[in-house]
Amino acid sequence: MLPAAPGVGFKPDHFAAIRKDAAGIGFFEVHAENYMGAGGLPHAQLSALRADHPLSIHGVGLSIGGSAGLDAAHLTRLRQLCDRYEPDSFSEHLAWSSHGAEYLNDLLPLPYTEETLALICDHVDQVQAALGRRMLLENPATYLQFANSSIPETEFLTRIARRTGCGLLLDVNNVFVSCTNHRSDPRAWLAALPLDLVGEIHLGGHDAEDLPSGPLLIDSHGAAVADPVWTLYAEVVDRAGPLPTLVEWDNDLPDWPVLAAEAARAGAILAQERRHHARAS
């Protein structure tokens, strides 16, 4: 289990700064696929980080929402990585990213139907069996919807979690991005999700384009967390209590103090919730 504290996505550019000052950082998260080489600097850095901090391994390439079976070779590499680093959490996405042998390098959306629900539950079962651990499944940021989707996203996630025993990774920015894009209410989305299933929260920045009907938000991970997302996050923490909370920043990378300050902002919200909880009990 990750600590109910702020974490950050680890970037090699920040390694030296982190080794000098990681005060207040409760855990680090890495993308699994960046640590699948044989040796060298990535493993040296990750071993050093792992020795001193809780670790979350976050996969971006398993294509759990794909129609073909999971890539057995990739699942094996994930198991080897988890065996080597013994992370406190492993998570992946409700999305697909491969077609046949081809890797599409994006987290692509899918219709929510009884057919895809059964398929994804089967894939999640396979992942949890192969890794010998419970995984967390992350809600996506989407730009489109599908005419044949018959199950609301929150119900889809909840049913997967209940059927497979997996937990959920709640990306609050993704909720805000998707709901804005689909002109629906992010608070209604969050109210429909049983927060006891959530094992980790993600926060990240987004970009915006203008469409005739209003804004189209893009999950860019290239900016500070937006104010409405902070507000939604505080409401989630108020309902659920403190949860492990990751700040993601993958593109247009800032210097370490800027990222650490974003994590500290999440930490302040978690600390306020703890004080509030202590007074109430």
């Binding site: 696929e33 960046n34 699948m36 080489g37 971006v60 390439g61 398993l62 294509s63 890539d71 990739h74 590499r77 990213s97 491969s98 042998a101 081809e102 890797y103 390098n105």
Partner: peptide, 9 residues
């Protein structure tokens, strides 16, 4: 030449 592995390296 499409990528055939999620390990883009």
């Amino acid at each position: 030449e499409r990528p055939v592995s999620p390990v883009l390296a």
